[in-house]
Design a protein around this nucleic acid. Sequence first.
DNA 1: ATCTGCTTGGCAAAAAATTCACAAAGTATC
DNA 2: GATACTTTGTGAATTTTTTGCCAAGCAGAT
Lengths: 209, 209
Amino acid sequence: MDSKDISQAVISRLPRYHRFLSELKDRGIERISSAELSDLMHVTASQIRQDLNNFGGFGQQGYGYNVDYLYEEIGHILGLDMRHNLIIVGAGNLGQALANYVNFDRRGFHTKGLFDSDPHMQGVVVRNMPVRPMSELEDFIRVNSIDIAVLTIPKEAAIEVADRLIRCGIKGIWNFAHIDLDVPPNVRVENVHLSDSLMKLSYNLRDLG
Amino acid sequence: MDSKDISQAVISRLPRYHRFLSELKDRGIERISSAELSDLMHVTASQIRQDLNNFGGFGQQGYGYNVDYLYEEIGHILGLDMRHNLIIVGAGNLGQALANYVNFDRRGFHTKGLFDSDPHMQGVVVRNMPVRPMSELEDFIRVNSIDIAVLTIPKEAAIEVADRLIRCGIKGIWNFAHIDLDVPPNVRVENVHLSDSLMKLSYNLRDLG
DNA sequence: ATCTGCTTGGCAAAAAATTCACAAAGTATC
DNA sequence: GATACTTTGTGAATTTTTTGCCAAGCAGAT
């Protein structure tokens, strides 16, 4: 299970497996074969088996995969059994929307604070958390052992804020700003570029009438 | 420029090129070589040339690429010069956040309406648009020539709502619901699974301390 | 306890994506 | 106008990803 050898393509598919297994669990299904899962997910059975085998053999010949067990294992691979403390930087509409996402807590992602540079936002309360001024950023990160920062600010401010976050030891940045961040190798960035996604949809609509 | 032959991997990279070219434009840079762009974007020059050549030769030997021209061409490939009318279904935090994104308008994506099934949301006004009841959905789509629906509703409702949308001729669905939609071949879905993205970040943080 | 059928794990083949390398064709300079 | 330099476009090589295949081995029935 040496992470460096596993391609991001495989990693990107794991959350989807996790999602379908969760659904199967909810439906009370105990076991599933790669062929059945293949039908459900519209990917080849071979790919499912290949993907899972990157992390060890979770199935059994003649039986298939145990849904509960596989669900737990994939969760473990993804690090969902670890606790992460987040802050959200940028308390605009999107920042507030993310702050209100209760499901993140269930996966071990706990939002501890909310920051905004706009003085008019100070004191506004979102999900029992007051919006804090940027001047409190560094102290708050240290005191609350924050390891992930969610960046929901305009691109103009993103680079500077990211630098500040990195300087006080943030490990992960979930970046919603419309810009690519250059970070040192010990920091991980996951981008959510909504505009890029919309443009992709636009392209795929081109020849549809 | 036969769209069916071009892989989604290439398409996924086009918005990023577009973004960097926009930045170069803003900085007043008129021309750029694939080697310079390669440095900037941290991808190989070869990949840039290969990607662009899928759609025709936009550069010139000994000169490179004209920034303005390439920007326009990629925008055209992505269909950004077409007008799209959107509705947002689900006026929760995320739906409202997206409704307030002014930048989408600049790219030809015009939000025309906002819907929610919750009676308490009726009449709430977001960016000058009243939240409408789901009963008005079909008529509104027809009257306003809506071609894209943004789905920001819980997964439990997503399949049923998607079916309604498809039945009245929606062409594209920008799906933020935490579930995969099965749609007929003449409908395009672009998924934004925020949880999946966060799990990917979680994985990449695993061996970082 | 044995037999039949099913399904994995892993290797091999095929396909797809990326990178290399260079001729061709332009730019810039003198 | 000739020469030196730059950089694209593209075919070929390489690498990565996906798919096909089947021996090995467990489950379930009798």
